[in-house]
Nucleic acid binder design. Structure first.
Lengths: 370, 370
DNA sequence: ACCTAGAGTTTGAACGATCAAACTTTTGCC
DNA sequence: GGCAAAAGTTTGATCGTTCAAACTCTAGGT
């Protein structure tokens, strides 16, 4: 088997030097067109491809972005990270970047992985998910000046810090739209089933409902308080909670939920109880929602991915911007807030209607925000 | 910011040569214990980590496995690939390997990516999913002697070819067990809802049902023929098909399905029709199945991942075995067939029973095959 | 004709590791 | 003690690329 061709081989065939070949590849504008043509045909003739490891060794960057693949991504909403990953991989490829995966047992171990991957020049930047208040990973990355972006806002911390680039989905707006959608259908006593207070994401979503209800339901504050229900993220417990609710309160007219899991549980209880015209809207637009005809708020993960790369590499760049030299200085925003879109399906109609013919339906009500 | 330490720095501190440091890292047994100790403390003191790109350039292997992240992995069963990916990443890390992702528009483009990643010494091996009859990717990889393993059997081709290593889930056995489970509960007229004939996987699963029914249902062949139903992979159409079925045939007692999507559609039709004691079993054990209490056949993707790495790297190896030097020569099998396990939930009981308390239930009936 | 600036190209060194071969020290045996 | 083999260690070259500086050539001004 013949050796793979190197710049040297190309140079010989094109009758130029190594460096000229390198220039044709990296800064073609400084090479005389005639020479460039000769080099380009030599490259094509030999089928030359740069040796990525040699480039990385010399340039000290890897064109690779690392992301932790979380082992506990099970459950109904587990596919969110995976869809994000799909979008990232695809869009990164368009900019000549690749995604590398790693796993870690815990946060401490993850920092150890950061160190290993950074020191080995394996990755140029990291994407973090599942961040939390006082997250030590973020402090470490900032102190080491390693470029990174988090998918998730630094709740309760400095959201405008130029050291911490982030992308997030505007949960407030999503739930606000969902609630408004039901209000627009003439309902007023719309409940909210969400997670216990204290999580940034959960509180954000709930306040979307609260704001919409205050603005348009006409209900007094005490009633709103009574329409706010709490449950942990689990289908069976949500189902049981909803069963109780339906027995106790016959005036409840519809429900907006913090997740598809909660919505699915509620939906099962509603069906069981025979309440056929009880609209429910979930959040995440998971495959389950699609399968059972549950209206849901869709996170536009392609836009989240696009925002992630924009923050890391600039609008069209093909390299990761060193930490600190990015948007902050030039006054551009250091974050992206993506507006989700409501996907309307059977479950949010007052009366049961025919479902769309295909499982890939659900593109109505599209808006091109952000 | 200080430069990262190199072997040179470690060597200086430990008062040895570069090569000795390298030996301590790569073949510690040939270094005198005393020297080794000195080098090891120098490594710890300086916090030295090998520069991965330099290693790759020199050794010409990358400790990285490539896998295509398929953009069309939506739908209920989409999480299969993702769960496999999780397992692979985790287990690969234990052997010092990493997973790198890439995307491709089509098969031809995927081969182009293979070439790029191989030539750039970016990856040592590939894992392929979604293989099909006459798959050109496989021919290319074999002809280029690039190590690879497919998740999926080469249906209709030489399954024992030492050039084509593969791992798969024994769908026959899974569906056989599911059917037997229902037969054991005293049912006989158990239907099978599967995909149109022609796909290896689909035919394999159906024959699991057919074999179990022939052995234990006591029904004549003509009846079995009539109990075999076909539908494409979609929840709504499965639901409609099941509605028709339930109207037409009141003797049907239960159903085994080729996928959770089909099972979910059937389940919805059954609930709608008020047939509360009609057992259904799906396949894939997706989050949806878990959420709605659908019994399902679980692919043990950790075992599939383990098998994949075993074929690529040997039982405990930390390097990819060059193409052709693997199992074939030493007479070991060149594939792994993983037996799935049936996860029993509400949906397969004759009478509705209480669901287990948590969404992570479903570990009964575990078997430790393979 | 001479000089300079700039465009275009080449050369030598370096990135950080490992391989292969040479070299030095220890061990075992008579 | 002497000698050969084995064990342990060092040296020089190399992997394929890009950086930095040197070099050559052309065009334009004086």
């Amino acid at each position: 088997m013949a050796q793979l061709p190197t710049v040297e081989d190309v140079a010989r065939v094109a009758n130029v030097s190594r460096q000229t070949v390198s220039n044709v590849l990296n800064s073609p504008e400084i090479v005389k067109p005639e020479t460039r043509g000769r080099v380009e045909s030599a490259i094509a003739e030999l089928g030359y491809r740069p040796h990525a490891s040699a480039q990385r060794l010399r340039t000290r960057h890897s064109s690779t972005i690392g992301i932790r693949l979380d082992p506990l991504s099970n459950g109904v909403s587990g596919s969110i990270l995976d869809r994000y990953l799909h979008a990232l991989t695809e869009q990164a490829a368009l900019r000549g970047m690749r995604m590398m995966l790693f796993t870690a047992r815990d946060t401490e171990d993850e920092i150890e992985q950061f160190r290993r991957l950074r020191d080995g020049a394996d990755v140029d930047a990291f994407v973090l998910t599942g961040t939390f208040y006082g997250d030590p990973r973020i402090d470490w990355l900032i102190s080491q000046r390693v470029p990174f972006v988090t998918f998730g806002r630094p709740w309760g911390e400095d959201m405008a810090s130029p050291d911490h680039l982030w992308v997030d989905v505007d949960g407030f707006s999503g739930v606000y739209d969902a609630t408004t959608h039901l209000l627009g259908r003439g309902l007023t006593r719309i409940g909210y089933l969400g997670w216990p207070a204290g999580s940034g994401t959960g509180d954000d979503r709930r306040s979307g409902w609260l704001t919409a209800m205050r603005e348009r339901s006409g209900l007094p504050a005490a009633d709103l308080e009574a329409l706010m229900f709490v449950n942990d993220e689990s289908v069976p417990t949500a189902r049981r909670a909803m069963e109780e609710l339906l027995k106790a309160d016959f005036t409840l007219q519809g429900l907006v939920c913090a997740s598809d899991s909660l919505a699915l549980g509620a939906m099962m209880a509603v069906n069981e109880a025979g309440r056929r015209s009880f609209p429910i809207i979930g959040f995440d637009n998971t495959p389950v929602a699609q399968a059972v005809g549950l209206s849901s708020v869709e996170q536009r993960l392609d836009q989240v991915a696009a925002g992630t790369l924009e923050l890391l590499m600039g609008a069209t760049g093909r390299r990761v911007i060193p930490h600190g030299e990015s948007a902050g200085g030039s006054g551009e925003p250091v974050h992206r807030l993506v507006t989700p879109k409501l996907v309307v399906r059977r479950s949010s109609h007052l009366a049961p209607v025919e479902e769309a013919g295909s499982t890939t339906a659900g593109n109505h009500n599209r808006k091109e925000n952000q």
